[in-house]
């Protein structure tokens, strides 16, 4: 394998946290409110993950994301369990791809409950597809500088005489 003993991999105990043990339909049903509730943690994690491009450096951010998700679903379970189960059941059984468009009635009931009990409004339908700006305290990783090769071919000086091409351009119908 490509992983030598020099590569520092975190211990298994560092990586073991309580995971979110939920089905796809359940996650899909709670996705919009979850994304809104954990927006900060999610943005922090995704920014770290894309900037560093290394899963080892974003483990703590990932743990925060998982903890936030668990907290969210615990709150939903406490406040709106019946409505949520109804909605998730509808999503599970209405289509093959867990589509949200078939379940607007149950979604309305669930949204109302979330707004009343947890004061969480459902974001607009394209909210998580929009570009977003995130302010973080994590320092930006250094950008790799452009390599300089001592034996590179020197460029032509600026004042060198530039003669017209002897046989013209092959794109003469476009350029002339």
């Amino acid at each position: 394998m490509v992983l030598t003993n020099d590569v520092v991999l975190p211990e298994e105990s560092e990586l073991t946290v309580e995971e979110v043990n939920l089905s796809t339909a359940t996650l899909r049903a709670g996705s919009f409110h979850l994304g809104k509730y954990c927006e900060k943690a999610n943005n922090e994690f995704m920014l770290c993950r894309i900037e560093e491009n290394d899963p080892r450096k974003c483990i703590n951010e990932g743990k925060v994301v998982t903890a936030c998700t668990l907290e969210f679903f615990r709150k939903v379970k406490k406040a709106c369990l019946a409505e949520f189960n109804q909605y998730a059941n509808c999503i599970d059984k209405s289509s093959g791809d867990y589509g949200l468009e078939h379940c607007r009635k149950t979604q309305g009931v669930f949204d109302k409950c979330m707004l009343e009990n947890l004061n969480l409004e459902r974001p607009p339908f394209g909210y998580f597809c929009e570009a977003r700006v995130h302010d973080t305290k994590r320092p930006k990783p250094p950008v790799e500088e452009k390599a300089v090769y001592p034996d590179a071919t020197p460029a032509l000086p600026d004042d060198v005489e530039r003669k017209p091409a002897r046989f013209g351009s092959r794109l003469y119908w476009m350029t002339e």
Binding site: R28, L100, F128
Partner: peptide, 30 residues
Amino acid sequence: IEMRSAKMAIYPMLLAERDREYLKQLRRNR
């Protein structure tokens, strides 16, 4: 767009879980 939005909302959570399991597996492989 709505479906993409829903998928992107849960993606960080799935990715965090995947990363942890991936690193565990890398250690197991080594």
